[in-house]
Design a protein around this nucleic acid. Structure first.
Length: 247
DNA sequence: AAGATCCACAACCGCATCCTT
DNA sequence: GAAGGATGCGGTTGTGGATCT
């Protein structure tokens, strides 16, 4: 059976967008807003597939986009977020106002990968390239030129990350490699209440909310009638925590 | 100057997830 | 709960410009 194609391929343009097509798309979205991508091309008089229109708008035409080179701060933030989130480009983009997932993905593949490799860091694991990864723990190494400021930012992610730095390192099993260069992060499940315990008045945010991605699909927080977060909903798994829904 | 190669990025494709009926 | 459509996401490709030989 299979799915019907998202558009009639025989009657759609492909390839680079023309100025006229851009203008039509912009004018239509200004008048009617985003959404209904499937019907948009016809309504806007475009011979394009809805997905193509959406992509063009999100990645290129949106007025709030920040064009131009990435700053050093953005570089480091992308590296840090990638070490935490992996190839979740949309989540990473959500933390970089004016940048799109596609843009960040391209930038990662063309610039940052090379940058990390030149530092001797595996861009996939964020660990030094010649080091084996222990199987029973996830330790992410990030090399920062601005390690201190980023440490401050990571400290805000309460309950999720334990930072091992030179001053804070209390883990005897972790060997310090490049003390001036690497900041090791240990990612571990946050503190989880026992099921039979009474809920506490104050609680920790879920991982998504702690990253500032409230109300995302990854959010496991429970809200009250006012929309205020009152608790995180534990799962019934042994670890009790669905790390970004990866369980 | 011309061809070859590399690089950056826009765009496409297929799959996953969400939403509606 | 199932089915099908709509939308979102991430991997990959195509293409134009820059650089090298």
């Amino acid at each position: 059976m299979g799915r019907s194609p998202c558009c009639e391929k025989a009657h759609t343009n492909k390839g680079a967008w023309t100025k006229e097509e851009d203008d039509r798309l912009i004018a239509y979205i200004r008048a009617h807003g985003e959404g209904c991508w499937r019907s948009l091309p016809k309504a806007a008089g475009l011979l394009r597939c809805g997905k193509s229109c959406r992509l063009r708008w999100i990645n290129y035409l949106r007025p709030d986009l920040k064009r131009g080179n990435f700053t050093e701060d953005e570089d480091e933030l992308i590296i840090k977020l990638h070490s935490l989130l992996g190839n979740k480009w949309s989540l990473i983009a959500g933390r970089l106002p004016g940048r799109t997932d596609n843009e960040i993905k391209n930038y990662w593949n063309t610039h940052i990968r090379r940058k990390l490799m030149s530092r001797g860091i595996d861009p996939t694991t964020h660990r030094p390239m010649n080091e084996a990864t222990p199987q029973d723990q996830v330790v992410t190494n990030i090399s920062f030129s601005a390690a201190n400021s980023i440490k401050e930012e990571i400290k805000n992610i309460n309950g999720v990350l334990m930072i091992n730095s030179k001053e804070e390192n209390s883990c005897p099993g972790v060997k310090e490699r490049c003390p001036d260069l690497n900041l090791e992060l240990r990612i571990s499940p946050p503190y989880q209440q026992q099921a039979d315990q009474e809920p506490r008045e104050s609680c920790t945010l879920c991982f998504a909310c702690s990253l500032g991605i409230q109300n995302s699909k990854d959010c496991t927080c429970i809200s009250d009638n006012n929309g205020s977060i009152i608790s995180t909903s534990g799962s019934s798994s042994s670890s009790g925590y669905d790390f970004l829904g990866l369980n």
